[in-house]
Design a protein around this nucleic acid. Structure first.
Lengths: 130, 130
DNA sequence: CCTTTAAATAATAATCGTTATTAAATAGTA
DNA sequence: TACTATTTAATAACGATTATTATTTAAAGG
C-alpha cells in the first residue's frame, strides 16, 4: 500500500502536513510535531518526510536552498517570490497536464512535471521591498 | 549592462558554462576553471556563478540537493532522471510560454517559469537500473 | 598616465541543512 | 508469546555553500 503510516511519528508528521496550506521545512515540521511528541528528533522527521515523499504521499520541493514539504494532494504549481521567498500554490491541473503531454522524447520517459513560477508576491509588490 | 564580465575569473567561468551542454555544479566548474587559473578558489566560483545567475546570464537549478548551473540561452525545460540523476534539456519555448500565459493571479506577478520533468532516462530504462 | 575608490580575490574558517551510525525500542506476524 | 525486521532517539558526521579578512585588482576621473 502506498501511504502506510505505521508509527506514531510518521502519522503525526503526515497529519500536520495535511492540515496546513504552507510549505514547511523539516525544521518547522519538527517544531510543530515535537509539541505532541517531545522526544522526537530532527533526524526522525527528515527520515519520515523523505519516506512520505518517496511514497508519493507528499511533495518535496527544493527551493531557496532547502527542502520544503507540501501535503497538498493533486497536481498543482508553485510560485516563489524572488524578494521574500514566500511560496504559494496555483491550482490548475491543466497547466501541468499540458506540459506533460507536450514532452515526447526518445531519450526520456517523463512521469511527472514540476512547475515553479518566480516573480513578486503581492506584499512585496506593494511595499516595494527588496 | 546585464552581462558584464569584468574579471578574468568571471569571464572564464561564463565562457566555460557557455561552452558545455551539461549542467555542472560549482565544484565541476571549479575543477575546469582552475586548469586555466590555478589560484582560483571554490568560493570565488560560487560568488561569480551566483552573480551571473542574478544578472540572468545563466540559470541556477536546484536539483538532487545541490545547485547546477546552466549556460544555455533562451527558454527551455529540464528532465531529471529519478534513477541516475542525469539532467537533460528540452527545447520548446512554447511549453514555457503557455505555462506563463495561463497564470494570472492577483496575489503574484509571475516573471519566469521553471519546468522540470522527472522520469527515467533512456540508459536507465534499457539497463533496468535502479 | 596617476590616483582614488569601490569591488573582487585567495585563503580560510564557519555555518547550515541533511544524512549516517548505533544501541534500544517498537511494530508486525507467526 | 516469541521472533524478526523496522523504527526510534541520540549523537556524530558530512557536504554544500557562505562569511570573514587582508590583499589585489578594476574602473573612472582628474
Amino acid at each position: 500500500m502506498v501511504c502506510e503510516r505505521n508509527t506514531i511519528q510518521k502519522e503525526k508528521i503526515f497529519k500536520y502536513l495535511s492540515s496546513v496550506e504552507t510549505h514547511p521545512t523539516a525544521e518547522t515540521v519538527f517544531n510543530e510535531v515535537r509539541k505532541e511528541i517531545p522526544s522526537i528528533t530532527l533526524a526522525t522527521v527528515y527520515r519520515n518526510l523523505n519516506k512520505l515523499a518517496e511514497q508519493g504521499c507528499v511533495h518535496r520541493l527544493e527551493l531557496n536552498g532547502e527542502y520544503h514539504f507540501d501535503g497538498r494532494q493533486g497536481m498543482h504549481q508553485h510560485g516563489v517570490c524572488r524578494k521574500c521567498g514566500k511560496i504559494i500554490d496555483f491550482i490548475d491541473s491543466e497547466i501541468s497536464k499540458n506540459a506533460l503531454k507536450k514532452i515526447n522524447s526518445a531519450d526520456f520517459e517523463a512521469e511527472d512535471v514540476t512547475i515553479i513560477y518566480s516573480g513578486v508576491c503581492k506584499e512585496c509588490k506593494y511595499t516595494g521591498r527588496n
